[in-house]
């Protein structure tokens, strides 16, 4: 019961933070709201007893991705620190598209019967994740490294172009 109440509170905070990300007039504030959303998601991972995912969420999303986003904002002087309108000419189309997606998701949740069968989390869950990386999921694991390599090369090319 206490957990449900906790979940509700954090879910509302996370959603509020997500809305803040979209409607904040200042891009830096939007980035901070996004960090709040990430933190909320990390909390849900803890509730789901996925502790490794929770800490990875904080390390990768708050520590790395959010910083990257803020640095990217700083690259574009024109928007930094200046109040910009939250809506542009795409607002109407995006609103319709999001409404459709939400409707589709709600419809999906009503027709799909989830097989909720909570198993106790094994003590060596992290070791099992590690084993999974090098056995069952070895192809995705290696592809991730290639994906990261491609991202790195792409970023260097882009930055060099900017520099010249």
């Amino acid at each position: 019961m206490a957990l449900q109440i906790l979940f509700l509170i954090v879910a509302i905070l996370t959603l509020g933070s997500a809305i803040g990300t979209v409607i904040a007039r200042n891009l830096f504030h939007a980035a901070l709201f996004l960090i709040g959303t990430f933190a909320g998601v990390a909390f849900f991972y803890v509730l789901l007893q996925a502790e490794f995912l929770a800490v990875s969420q904080v390390v990768v999303y708050i520590g790395a991705i959010a910083t990257l986003i803020i640095f990217a904002i700083m690259l574009t002087r024109s928007v930094m620190g200046r109040e910009a309108g939250a809506l542009n000419q795409w607002a109407g189309i995006v609103a319709v598209a999001s409404a459709l997606i939400i409707a589709a998701l709600i419809w999906l949740f009503t027709i799909v019967k989830f097989d909720v069968n909570p198993q106790p989390v094994p003590d060596d869950a992290i070791a099992q994740i590690g084993k999974g990386f090098v056995s069952t999921y070895v192809i995705p694991f290696e592809v991730v490294s290639i994906l990261l390599l491609v991202a790195l090369i792409g970023a260097i090319m882009l930055a060099r172009e900017r520099h010249q």
């Binding site: 502790e51 490794f52 929770a54 800490v55 904080v58 708050i62 003590d123």
Partner: peptide, 17 residues
């Protein structure tokens, strides 16, 4: 906790933020 070391890294990121 099972993720002690990464937990420390996580809060180091919060501090840099």
């Amino acid at each position: 906790i099972n993720v002690g070391v990464v937990y420390l890294m996580a809060f180091a990121s919060v501090s840099s933020m």
